[in-house]
Design a protein around this nucleic acid. Structure first.
Lengths: 330, 330
DNA sequence: GGCAGACTTGAAAACGCTTTCCTGGAGGTC
DNA sequence: GACCTCCAGGAAAGCGTTTTCAAGTCTGCC
């Protein structure tokens, strides 16, 4: 293992000089010494020991990212955006997946704290459980007390900078578009009752219907994934249009209707939320609310990185995209 | 920032004892002191400084994972598998995305080396460029010289433990299944000419046709993603069946045919490779070769972790899955 | 009762880097 | 030519752990 000291010795300079040459310092080093050091480093195949560097500097160059499930394209897109800005800044990303277990989320934050990461990004919806939220928040506070930076994508309830998707508004806009098509009787595949994102989308949607004096939609809860959508779709009855609170659930619903011989959009319309890129080639193409996921991930990291006094919540609007999976009622 | 020393002082014990209590040592510590230390740590909110620990121990607990593109479900699945075993072993994963740029791959390995990660996992196909491969290999060798462990998913040409998907065999089996359906004239959407995975799948497929005395398939190169499949599909002519060397390309091809009014599988059959979970609900459902992606990622990490003398190449077989996107020729 | 042996505890030396502080020499000004 | 400033370079003190080694305490056994 080649150390900086080996390099310094071989170059015939002091440790300090070698350090200044190799690991970005503001201080100048004379051209000849600089060359010697660089040569020695190359010959020896020196690699900075980041652990030592982190210890000495008191700050590392890794940022932590916590998502629920990397195989969910929603989180993959978010992560991708964050990673892009990370490495434009010479930072490296450590990823943890909670598999939707809040305990794991807390323990990841603790682990990232131990790593002294520069920032932690929490992506994904909170559970509406005050107890868990409080414990997570405590862990985050502990991290922040020692200079850590935090940002979230989702709800603004952790006292950190947050990129807030316009869930309620997006769902509302979608509801208006769908009623505009002539629908009156809706079902909402609402996901888990405790998941805030799911709840916001469902209530945003229902709110518009109520405002228009239309009958309340049939609400069907279930899991937030494809299978949840599939199962929930089976319970829909009497609706001409179904709103699944995210695209992967909508995919499940599509499959369920297909399996039961119900044609979309001929017999029933289906809409989702997120506009997952991988799912754009679905047939019928899914009507949905587009969220700029990669940008959101990127933005979250930027927020975390540029320290500010006040806590910022930046909302990003969703854009309704009507495609073939919806049309007017028969 | 609470240090171990603070904890030791508060507990009235030595640094050594505090260390032994808090950070898993084989050494025993008396029950009363142990309790004191734990109490003090809890009161003070102590968090191990992993950087210091890594420095002192000379080995950290992070493993590095390099993939081409996290938004590609193929890599997401691989990553997910690796992360599962990682955190069953108390390890944490650092992810880098190369965006298919070999230079970035090399620099990631270098960065991971600097981090002194326990192991690095390289997922995804190599480019058949001897120069780049050599440089990557040099970087890996440097890492291994100092005790680093490496494993790959893909081709066994880096001198490391490798999980080798049965690309050639899987494609061959698929070809047999498809000819069994009655097809004689094929097109292969072959991806980039230099990408080994793509090439193996294409040649495995073509080999069977040749062996059967059938005409050579039309080979169309293009990028390895959805758009590559879309573009390549436009050039197909005269085939009754199209083999896209991966599922996302097949999705592109499906879209292209749809846009041009060509019905799948009525007018033409389409098959892919990988059996991406997110794509299972496609219509028509895609015939493909299933690869246990998550298991492969998990297995790669296991290989990297359990040190062995010899270099192991473990192959995993693909399983042909015929669905609706293929049928006999009209 | 004394002693070998087994354990527990603490002191202190790494681990590899950064950075502060100091020294000495070069260049500028009057 | 004397004085001051400015700057490149080096010595050494950390950064927060782990771990070796020596010292001390018990236990049990003859």
């Amino acid at each position: 293992m080649v150390t900086l000291e080996d390099v310094a010795r071989q170059a015939g300079v002091s440790l300090a000089t070698a350090s200044r040459v190799l690991n970005g310092s503001t201080r100048q080093v004379g051209a000849s010494l600089r060359a010697k050091v660089e040569l020695a480093a190359a010959q020896l195949g020196y690699r900075t020991n980041v652990a030592a560097q982190t210890l000495a500097r008191g700050a590392g160059n890794v940022i932590g990212l916590v998502v629920h499930d990397l195989t969910d394209p929603y989180f993959a897109a978010l992560a991708d955006g964050a990673m892009r800005v990370a490495d434009s800044k010479g930072l490296v990303v450590m990823v943890g997946t909670t598999r939707r277990d809040p305990e794991r989320e807390i323990s990841y934050v603790s682990a990232l704290n131990a790593q002294r990461v520069r920032a932690v990004l929490l992506a994904g919806s909170r559970i509406a459980d005050p107890h868990v939220t409080r414990r997570l928040r405590e862990e985050l506070d502990r991290y922040r007390e020692t200079g850590g930076r935090v940002a979230c994508v989702g709800q603004d309830l952790l006292g950190a900078d947050t990129v807030v998707p316009g869930n309620r508004e997006g769902a509302a806009a979608l509801a208006r578009a769908l009623t505009g098509l002539g629908h009156r009787r809706f079902a909402v595949l609402a996901g888990p009752a405790g998941l805030i994102t799911a709840r916001d989308r469902a209530t945003g949607f229902a709110g518009v219907l109520a405002g228009l004096g239309l009958p309340a939609p049939q609400i069907v809860h279930g899991s937030f994934d494809r299978d949840g959508g599939y199962a929930a779709a089976a319970e829909v009855s009497g609706a001409t249009c179904v709103f699944a609170v995210n695209d992967v659930m909508a995919v499940g619903a599509l499959a369920a209707f297909r399996d039961r011989g119900i044609r979309v959009p001929h017999d029933i319309s289906v809409a989702g939320f997120d506009d997952i890129v991988t799912l754009r080639d679905l047939v019928p193409a899914l009507s949905t609310v587009r969220l700029p996921l990669a940008d959101m991930g990127a933005r979250a990291l930027e927020l975390a990185l540029d320290a500010a006094e006040e806590i910022r919540a930046e909302s990003v609007a969703g854009e309704v995209v009507l495609r073939e999976s919806t049309r007017g009622p028969a």
